[in-house]
Design a binder for these strands. Structure first.
Length: 262
DNA sequence: ATGGTTGTGTTACAA
């Protein structure tokens, strides 16, 4: 069984104590991190490697940045989506590890609407859809985890009316998220938990965490071959309640090993 | 109440 988690850490250096304790306690086989906010050279490699993880990093100064941590070697690494050679924003990294292709995704926020940032979000989603369609042609198990910055449906936020003008809720954003799923992917959490009121992000402001004013924007998407092996998926709210937390909390899933399927 | 908080090679901007 392979335990895979995704977590937007909101700066890996500011969050290092939280990240290290989480890796020790939760011990995911693969961790997909977003918003590391650091260039590759300054990533705290030694501290994380000391816990037994291999690293693949696509970093950037100040903003964005994604990484894959895995207890197995990571091969066939891709940094950035195809068609974004002029895109300086580090938001996608993919690799092959432990027999699974995995990607860490930090989809653009896209606010304010309308505007250049929203246009960038939509075109980035179009490139993600196109690349995912290519991945599906290989008929292999893959896991796309990350901060999608999309609230898929009204049941995924505490008060839909408050988000009506937000890029995370726009029909264009939601339609593209559905198009991604309609390629044949399974959204792991929603597949196993049909009910409302489960969130992965709570704003730092206004006591949102204490009031449970959250939204569900961190998602794990599975190819058919991975979905066939899905054992479990959940949101781990523990890290969000600690000192100096990220505003996001990890989402994780367990994928059965191929040799254990009969 | 057009607020609030966190992070960044910051002092404006992104989330």
């Amino acid at each position: 069984m392979t335990k895979i988690a995704t977590w937007n850490v909101n700066s890996v250096r500011a969050r290092l104590p939280r990240v290290l304790e989480w890796l020790k306690e939760f011990s995911p086989d693969v961790a997909l991190l977003q918003e590391i906010k650091v260039i590759d050279e300054n990533f705290p490699k030694m501290e994380i490697e000391d816990l037994g993880y291999n690293l693949a990093i696509h970093g950037q100064k100040t903003y964005n940045g994604v990484a894959i941590l895995s207890k197995s070697p990571i091969e066939d690494i891709r940094r950035g989506l195809p068609g974004e050679t002029l895109d300086e924003q580090a938001r996608y990294i993919e690799g092959l590890t432990n027999g699974l292709r995995v990607a860490s995704i930090y989809l653009p926020n896209g606010n304010p609407v309308p505007g250049e940032k929203f246009d960038y979000k939509l075109s980035w989603m179009d490139r993600l859809i196109s690349h995912t369609a290519d991945l599906l042609k290989n008929d292999e198990a893959f896991v796309l985890g990350g901060d999608y910055n999309v609230i898929p449906a009204d049941i995924d936020c505490y008060e839909p009316a408050r988000w009506i003008d937000d890029a995370l809720c726009q029909p264009e954003s939601r339609r593209r998220f559905r198009s991604l799923l309609n390629l044949g992917l399974t959204e792991a959490f929603r597949a196993l938990h049909p009910g409302p009121g489960c969130y992965s992000y709570w704003d730092y402001t206004g006591g949102a965490w204490q009031k449970d004013f959250g939204i569900r924007i961190d998602h794990i998407l599975l190819s058919p071959q991975a979905s066939d092996r899905l054992i479990n998926c959940d949101i781990d709210k523990t890290p969000r309640g600690k000192e100096k937390p990220s505003d996001h909390t990890p989402v994780w899933c367990e994928i059965e090993n191929k040799e254990d399927i009969f």
